[in-house]
Design a binder for these strands. Sequence first.
DNA 1: CAGTATCCGACCGGATACTG
DNA 2: CAGTATCCGGTCGGATACTG
Lengths: 124, 124
Amino acid sequence: MNYNQFKHCGLNVTLTMLSGKWKPIILYHLFHNAEMRFTELWRIIPKVAKKVLLDHLKQMEADGLIIREEKQGFPPEVSYRVSEKGKALGPALSALETWANEYAADEVAEFKKTTVGKLRQHLS
Amino acid sequence: MNYNQFKHCGLNVTLTMLSGKWKPIILYHLFHNAEMRFTELWRIIPKVAKKVLLDHLKQMEADGLIIREEKQGFPPEVSYRVSEKGKALGPALSALETWANEYAADEVAEFKKTTVGKLRQHLS
DNA sequence: CAGTATCCGACCGGATACTG
DNA sequence: CAGTATCCGGTCGGATACTG
């Protein structure tokens, strides 16, 4: 048996890169906005601690999913955007989303009631 | 607005269902074997604690990804297989795997050196 | 504005022993 | 064979305060 043929390795790598409580919503916003300031992301995402958001962004940058751009000057101005590598992941993420809505609609509804409810509250 | 349009709610739900250190390799084997006994899985997966494997299988069953079937008698005989819901996730998982091999080949190679290396050791 | 520095509790993977 | 029952250590998300 040739173990180099194992097909779960890449899957494991990808899931590891995506694991992190706020990464899906970060990716969602970056996919829809082309470029966002740090505070912009921080205000939009409900109840996330600054440190945690920074941790996630650092990981995603280290994994090459997003690109961090810093303009010199004061006050600091940092923006994040999706890399080509990240964009290439879009269809796969879309497939995961579609599957959930089709086969796990209840859990999705539950998720919306909790997290998205908090989001509205946060923005008002 | 014509980007890769995924919302993050379903994505979050799906990733939560897939989060677990050994779930990718469990799914891999169940996808390729149609039906497996518990010990069969346990022997194949390197260095996983019985309790952890059971935890993962219980979660996956609760999420409806796999089906647990128990035949009465002694000694116990329990087998696991992928549900229709789980099978429907196959293409999306495949897309994640493909992306990793194309855009994160280094990490995949590294993963093989560690985990698959342990597998050989475990089987010998 | 965009970070760092601490500190903390909860959860998760894991080791080990026991059971019907 | 296929589980339970404990206990443990590390990591992760999070709250709070401080800084260039």
